[in-house]
């Protein structure tokens, strides 16, 4: 019985150990590296991402027609997401550094459609000039970080605010779930892309387990960062939160 338990432990431990190497060490865990997906999977994720980016562009055009400062604001927010997702943060459990993705934060502030566009922009610059992510995996990265991260962040924040949960907790949960939604989607994309003839589920679980040492603490970091950002804006510039329709005017007045 003891030997059986030990075997199970080792079978779990070794993928986790590999994962620590694969997804940590100044890792850009959210980004799927260039070339890792075969062309058919890479193309599929492009097809999935394209309509969301198109909706984002349509909304950008609509909003920038009424507010000239909207395009510069979206560009600047893309720069903020770029910087945040390049910032190495120590992850004590993995003994190394990783980075948050910032898409939950942009999802809360600018809405999911614009946030997807922001992520697409930040990812393209990172792929071209920093080799974080890639051109061929751009679609897959938009789906995991942009679509899933932004939607999870936005929906969580709105749902929790609707049931009167306070701003710091709603912000924290939005960041946390945005990060974890991103990492689960990345696991699906990676497992489906590299499985070859092997079955999908075992590889998916191995990758998911491998992400745990960084992504569990990183999700908490992302949550704290998002909560800190929303609270700071609430204290310093509540008018901006009202303008971006994050909060209702009566919530600020209260």
């Amino acid at each position: 019985m003891k030997i059986q338990n030990l075997k199970i432990r080792i079978q779990v431990f070794i993928p986790v150990l590999f994962g620590c190497f694969l997804f940590t060490g100044n890792a850009y865990a959210m980004h799927i590296s260039e070339g890792i997906l075969p062309w058919n999977w890479a193309a599929l994720w492009f097809v999935v991402a394209a309509p969301f980016v198109a909706v984002g562009l349509h909304r950008l055009k609509k909003l920038s027609n009424t507010d000239l400062s909207f395009k510069p604001l979206v560009g600047l927010m893309a720069a903020v997401v770029f910087i945040i997702s390049c910032m190495p943060i120590p992850v004590p459990t993995a003994g190394t550094c990783s980075h948050p993705c910032g898409t939950g934060m942009s999802g809360i502030l600018l809405g999911p459609t614009i946030s997807i566009l922001i992520t697409a922009v930040a990812l393209l610059i990172q792929a071209l000039f920093l080799a974080h992510g890639g051109l061929s995996t751009w679609g897959a990265d938009i789906v995991s970080m942009g679509i899933m991260g932004s939607l999870a962040g936005f929906l969580t924040f709105r749902a929790l605010r609707a049931i009167k949960i306070n701003i710091p907790i709603a912000g924290f949960m939005a960041g946390l779930l945005a990060d974890w939604a991103t990492y689960i989607t990345t696991s699906v994309e990676l497992a489906s892309g590299i499985k070859g003839d092997s079955p999908f589920m075992p590889l998916f679980w191995k990758i998911l387990i491998a992400f745990i040492p960084t992504q569990l603490p990183l999700g908490i970091l992302e949550g704290a960062m998002t909560a800190g950002m929303v609270v700071l804006l609430y204290k310093k510039r509540p008018d901006l939160l009202v303008k971006m329709r994050v909060l209702k005017p009566e919530e600020v007045a209260a």
Binding site: L73, I84, L109, M229, V231, L232, L233, R237, L240
Partner: peptide, 13 residues
Amino acid sequence: FGVLAGSLTLKAF
């Protein structure tokens, strides 16, 4: 880090 992210967002606005 939360304050840093918030400050950057404010600066962006």
